[in-house]
């Protein structure tokens, strides 16, 4: 695997946003869920996957996992298998969902990437928590629905808004005005 300068730098800086969201109240939206808030910490990973490809998504997911491991407030996140491993896949699945549907309609691609990326986070983390005995299956399903669905709405809305605006402003889709 060879990492280009672009991939290194973009992962580094979007990873910094993930950490910033993680250590400030910016990353949490007050929502009536079991935890009292919905996280948007995984959005940099989804955006990285969408805009720069799966490798960047994976690296940002790793940084997100690391920060949630080091600053664990939920008990199960002091286990690296729950905190870090599932997060590696967020950017990859988001990219795959986008790549599979962008030909039909780019906005469908963004929406699906937001949904699939968030679902990856929720399902893999809770799945790992069940495997590692932190939660029972029934509890994980209840928790996943109550916490995961509002998170999915929040993350999908933000992903679609952010990606379409970033692409428009940076001229990603306009080859003549491209500044990549």
């Amino acid at each position: 695997m060879k990492l280009t300068i672009r991939k290194i730098v973009v992962s580094g800086i979007l990873g910094a946003i993930a950490i910033l969201l993680g250590v400030t109240p910016l990353g949490l939206i007050a929502v009536p869920t079991p935890l009292g808030h919905a996280t948007i910490l995984h959005i940099p990973a989804i955006l990285g996957g969408l805009l720069e490809g799966p490798v960047v998504g994976l690296l940002i997911g790793f940084i997100f996992g690391l920060i949630s491991f080091i600053r664990a407030t939920l008990p199960m996140f002091s286990d690296p298998l729950v905190a870090i491993l599932p997060r590696l896949f967020i950017g990859i699945t988001a990219y795959l969902a986008y790549a599979a549907t962008r030909k039909i309609n780019p906005y469908l691609g963004y929406t699906l990437a937001g949904i699939v990326g968030t679902a990856t986070n929720t399902v893999f983390v809770l799945g790992m928590a069940v495997i590692r005995d932190y939660l029972t299956v029934e509890l994980a399903v209840t928790f996943g629905l109550a916490q995961g669905i509002p998170e999915m709405i929040v993350a999908t809305v933000l992903t679609v808004l952010l990606v379409s605006s970033i692409k428009r402003i940076r001229g990603f889709e306009d080859p003549a005005g491209s500044n990549r």
């Binding site: 290194i8 992962s11 580094g12 990873g15 910094a16």
Partner: peptide, 13 residues
Amino acid sequence: LTMVITLRFVPTL
């Protein structure tokens, strides 16, 4: 290098 860039840019951002 990615980690260093991340740590460097957290305060800036």
